[in-house]
Write a protein that binds this DNA or RNA. Structure first.
Lengths: 220, 220
DNA sequence: CCGCTTATTGGTCACCGATCCAATAACCTT
DNA sequence: AAGGTTATTGGATCGGTGACCAATAAGCGG
């Protein structure tokens, strides 16, 4: 009865295998932390021998930074997607800010916190963080500018407004690993939302309203 | 010639030795990171055998969290000292916010970032972080309230104002490990300073001015 | 001054990382 | 169908960590 689930050996194309590895690494990074993106852990995840991972990533740190980049990119595409023609900037901003301010996407906040710290010791990760940072910033600046053109936002310095919003978002992200009761008085998440509204001349409550409106009205 | 710097054995009182260990650990934590607060590393720092450290801290994690608490407490006492009767709230706030916003105290910002992330995995550290967080918050709230009473600050919600300032400060702290050129357009450090000024009804530039004034005028 | 408590030593052990490498076998090419 | 390329394996090595412990000696109290 010695079932032989020992799947012998499955040989895949380098591209495919590599993608598979990065995918698994990103998954672990997001769920368990970048320090658990280890040759053995990823190998285990894929049901493969550690040596194989080393074959594709001779330097383990590179896998770590790729995992971060991959996870981060995918998350951004869902949180701050590039212009959807039909969706006004206010709604796009609302999704981004509210999505991060509220409990959702805690994974992502933790990952950023993780990466920002770990980048102190890992050169390649530091570069990846910087890159992702500027991509995000660019996306947000573009969004703000578009909103200004459509008259939805009001600011004389789009870059500055974006920076303020990002600092607030990252500030909240600092608390991503707190597990204290959310009785922080003035709903801590509001800080980012209010900051965005203030900086862009939106009436208080606008952003949360837009999000609620959208989720209640799934099919236009 | 065999100099015998092998200091035989120096036996100290438990209290003294323990303090010495925590001191060394705090130093390493601040300068090299909490993950380097290791039995061996601290022992080396003190010219002592690792076993001794284990004798005082059977659970290594406790040393880590104590190191954080120690370092953090000392730094706070210099950055946000408890009421000095002669110093007006504006100046005390200025020292705190500007001190953190500008390049100084990078060590401290890195340590906080470090601790906030690492607390994801270390229970005892998580508690220490939460404690230090609330001590700092309480100190800042008290300061804001005092400023409101003296008429220097203007806000209808001291706690909220303090939270905003802290989020901005922590947001900046997120970038503590960046080594990119500081050409971030609108001086990134300004975000915290401006946030404080805005939230407390201070004229723009007030805080930086106060700091400059104080450092130019050492002896009253 | 001697004895006893205990701070301090100098190891051991198990665990878990990265890195490297020879041998194996999957699969494509001819 | 045979051969060759190389993806994949299964080790071994090395360095670092925490935990643990018997033995030693420092220095205090009698």
């Amino acid at each position: 009865m010695t079932s032989r689930p020992r799947s012998q050996r499955t040989r895949k194309s380098p591209d495919q295998r590599r993608a598979e590895i990065v995918e698994a690494a990103a998954h672990i990074a997001l769920g368990e932390g970048l320090e658990l993106v280890t040759l053995r852990r990823i190998a285990e995840e894929l049901g493969v021998r550690p040596g194989l991972i080393h074959h594709y990533f001779p330097v383990a740190d590179h896998l770590v930074s790729e995992a971060f980049t991959h996870a981060t990119t995918r998350e951004r595409e869902s949180l701050l997607p590039p212009a959807e023609e039909d969706l006004p900037p206010v709604d796009r901003l609302a999704r981004f800010v509210v999505g991060l301010a509220d409990g959702d996407h805690l994974d992502l906040s933790r990952l950023w916190l993780n990466a920002r710290h770990l980048s102190r010791f890992k050169e390649s990760l530091r570069l990846a963080v910087r890159t992702q940072e500027s991509v995000t910033r660019a996306a947000l600046v573009t969004l703000v500018q578009k909103g200004v053109r459509t008259g939805e936002f009001e600011t004389d310095d789009a870059l500055k407004a974006a920076l303020y919003i990002l600092v607030a978002v990252d500030g909240l992200g600092s608390y991503a690993n707190d597990d204290s009761p959310p009785q922080d008085g003035p709903e801590i998440g509001d800080v980012a939302v209010e900051t965005a509204e203030t900086r862009l001349g939106l009436a208080p409550g606008t952003l949360r309203t837009r999000v609620r409106a959208r989720s209640a009205d799934p099919a236009p």
